[in-house]
Amino acid sequence: MYYLQTKDVVKQYAAHCALDGVSIDVPKASVFGLLGPNGAGKTTLIRIITRITAPDSGDVMLNGQAMTKEDVYKIGYLPEERGLYKKMKVEEQVLFFARLRGMDAALARAETDKWFQKFDIANWYNKKVEELSKGMQQKLQFIATVIHNPDLLIFDEPFSGFDPVNVELLKNEILKLKAEGKTIILSTHNMESVESICDNITLINRSKAVLQGSVAEIRNSHKSGIFQLKLHADTFSPPALAPFALLSSAPSYDGLEVRIQKNADTTPAELIRYVLQTTDILSFEEEIPSMSDIFIQTVKN
């Protein structure tokens, strides 16, 4: 069941086409990565989902239904550029956003308390936003985004500006939200976090969705048949007519580390058999490409 879908969304600006028929399918209760180089059209897509701008053509479906004006209350959006009213007090600010999205004042107050405790900023209630450090403001903005308990959360670069401890805290909160059944769209350039928390991704390049699917599948399908082996030998030269090529070999204190690339029609088992003909194998591992590699490779092509 997809919670959010966009179908052939097209957005044309005066000078260029920002989105050219982009469709995405975001399953319910999952973390969905929206990737792409700068200027690819991610922000435009997010603005269309949040109804800040309207698409020229195409549909946005929420829970199987065409999205309506009232649905914006079900969305929590954390834009990349942090925006808070600098002169407002911390608590007032969060309450304002909660009420703006249709939350009852008393309930909003209770929720604010809860989040402030969780993020350890309870003693900042009466400070003005401009007095807070950048990290504090980031936390506050995160709270302002989730305060009204929305079903769909859109985070644009949520980790930028956070120290590693707070990145961890934030990741855990995002996973907790997912466990509660929320659907999360994460737009980020931090590929490490994509690998660790995203279930599915869409890579947008030059206004088009060029790569879509689950993170595991995509990484598997981008395997290039490179294996890392540690051998019990001083030197290694592949036998004649071996179904693989030696890429590199380097001695280490407990063996010889080699990288080999197998031929396309060879299985890993055959590979092992060939190597074992000459030396013992201490370890054997297939290299799975990182999202970062896949990103660069896809965008370059």
Partner: peptide
């Protein structure tokens, strides 16, 4: 201008 510079306008416009 403050809202625009602050980019708070994006948060606001996602709701109103």
């Amino acid at each position: 201008m403050e809202e625009k510079k602050n980019r708070i306008v994006e948060v606001m416009l996602s709701t109103v």
